[in-house]
Amino acid sequence: MSERLGVLKTYKLFIGGKFPRTESGRSMKVADGVGGGQAHVCRASRKDLRGAVEAAHAAQPGWAAAGSFLRSQILYRVAEMLEARSGEFERSLAPGGSASLSPTEEVALSVDRLVAFAGWCDKFQQVLGTHNPVSGPYYNFTVPEATGVVGVISPQSPALLGMVSLLAPALCSGNAAVVLASSANPVPGAIFGEVCVSGDVPPGVVNILTGDPVEVVEHFATHREINALHAAGLTDEQSTTLRSGAAENLKRVCIRETNEWSGDVCESPEWIEPFVEFKTIWHPSSA
């Protein structure tokens, strides 16, 4: 009897809760720790980005309205699903690897990070919001609300932890996200979409593209329906592209310079703050 052939995995994009191929029909050859050899992942085009933004724009109001507790439960469930598939993610991280973290450590930290931001879902409002003193018989509150659609550009490494650390704070406050996975190792990003589906993340709230940053970063910056950007590990040239494109349409840009992804600093509410809009309300009442 001949030796059984393994099922080779072909990695797709994750857009609107589905796993489509790129409309461009292009792929990239990458080392694949899960399949134990090489694999092809989609090389997304700007049209895929457009489709992902449409999906995110449609899903975002429902996600924001879902309420803090439900968002918290869903993020926690994503963490559960990630933990359950930790073996697969560890294998996916083996090629390339991170300088300072073992695959096991990186997956564990990614789970913990999701749990941390699941916890923040119903608490960041108290930390970022204020009760403002006013000289009159009124209450005056400032409350944080979701910005809208956030573009997440993941660092090359750590492929999983970097992506999760940039994504989770944006989701926490009710934003939808369009993520560009690490191009050095896109496989963890590609399979993270499956974790989102089994974690009951509503379709369109998280969208994940794999591809060449050189091609799509510019369109992340100039797309007027993306309201904010969370990025790390960019080249100077890409930072400039991102900032100048975003300046034109006044979107918020937050580029992280950190190399220390394991620290508590990445779980601070300061990571949530760039992706909220502050609304101040006067409440007429005899205080």
Binding site: R50, V53, H57, H219, T222, H223, R224, E225, N249
Partner: peptide
């Protein structure tokens, strides 16, 4: 060459 937003 740029994608517009619905609110435009």
């Amino acid at each position: 060459g740029r994608y517009a937003a619905w609110h435009d």
